[in-house]
Nucleic acid binder design. Structure first.
Length: 121
DNA sequence: CTTCTGACA
DNA sequence: TGTCAGCA
């Protein structure tokens, strides 16, 4: 399929699909006309890229991860990449710490706003 | 009509 | 990231 079909089937713009390729996340064959051609598994790969990007992972990490992520993007199967797991767990810990800090910020803001409603007009 | 690359009011 | 240009 051509980029237009891959785009409509994944909901990812053609611009982004080309960007994924620039970042080394997605491969494509070229027809004699120079058009990018994708195989039937491309939609799933794009799905995985969307997931990994949503996880906030850098494209460099995603590139490596794609080598061991398979199956339906809705039910990812991670086979191999034993070393990657440690990194992902560390990333998860960073995200948890970030959430904790944001919750603290929210609490402080809530206290300030609470004081505001009770303060002078 | 569709895609390609490069560039930015 | 969208979008426009100028080709093929």
């Amino acid at each position: 399929m051509l980029i237009g079909e891959l785009s409509s089937r994944t909901g990812v713009s053609r611009r982004m699909i080309r960007y994924y390729e620039q970042q080394g996340l997605l491969e494509s064959a070229r027809g004699t006309n120079g058009y990018r051609q994708y195989d039937d598994q491309a939609p799933a790969v794009v799905g995985h890229i969307k997931n990994l990007l949503a996880a906030g992972l850098p494209t460099a990490t995603i590139a490596g991860l794609l080598q061991c992520v398979h199956g339906d993007p809705a039910r990812p199967v991670l086979s191999g990449c034993p070393g990657m797991v440690d990194g992902l767990q560390a990333e998860r810990a960073r995200v948890a710490a970030e959430i904790s800090r944001l919750n603290t910020s929210q609490e402080v803001l809530d206290i300030l706003l609470e004081a505001a409603v009770h303060g002078p007009r």
